[in-house]
Amino acid sequence: MKINLKVWRQKNNKAKGELKDYKVDHVSPDMSFLEMFDVLNEELITKGDDPIAFDHDCREGICGSCSMHINGRPHGPLAGVTTCQLHMRSFSDGDTIVVEPWRAGAFPVTKDLSVDRTAFDRIIAAGGFISVNTGNAQDANNLPIGKEQADEAFMSAACIGCGACVAACKNASAMLFVSAKVSQLALLPQGQPEAKMRVMAMVNQMDAEGFGSCTNTGACSAECPKGIDLSNIARMNREFFSANLTGK
């Protein structure tokens, strides 16, 4: 396959970026999207050009590092996959593909396609934890938790913090991410002692980072590689109302 690329190149956070055209010949349909970029980067390095910076780590679809906005959609045209699990067979020979970094004020571009997502880390640090005394692990099933409850918490915990929700949202809102992180703990008994403080602190941090607010378009959930449901956002709203109305 021959693929034409329009890739966002930006030297650093301060520099002005632009879309640059690249041609990649000899693309195998079995390559992942990132492997196609590896091939392109090899060529750029051989020519003495600066390779394109992009984030990646596990390449198994579970780490949430790869963050390309491909043809107007986070992680490209497929539902429920990250960029590393997108293969070139999803495109046709001769296609032109536009590749941009996540766009959000709270995710500044560090270089090319790589963005700084530490805003998410600061939101987690604000309240996305539980306090337990260390020591021996408890016996399994010591705390009775209903299966449905456990399953729901697990679905929320599937969030890998990739930021596709922010990238897809027309308001660059982080509500789906934050609500998944609030929900996974709000649904379990271990999360109860700090529940009110948690949701207040995490929402405050989310607002302080400059993410937009939710207008319920549903784009976040539709683009989420882990299929995090919109019910999480409704749950976070309820948690937030209750914490404000009844918290100390």
Binding site: H69, G72, E100, K170, A172, S213, T215, T217, G218, A222
Partner: peptide
């Protein structure tokens, strides 16, 4: 006011943005 605040949350726009792939147009044109 909220629309203008939300616009500020994305200071640099996408060159390609395929909204119709993931949301209904009414929700984006409120």
């Amino acid at each position: 006011y909220l629309v203008s605040q939300n616009k500020k949350a994305r200071p640099v726009q996408y060159a390609a943005y395929n909204g119709k792939a993931n949301s209904h147009w009414t929700s984006r044109w409120m």
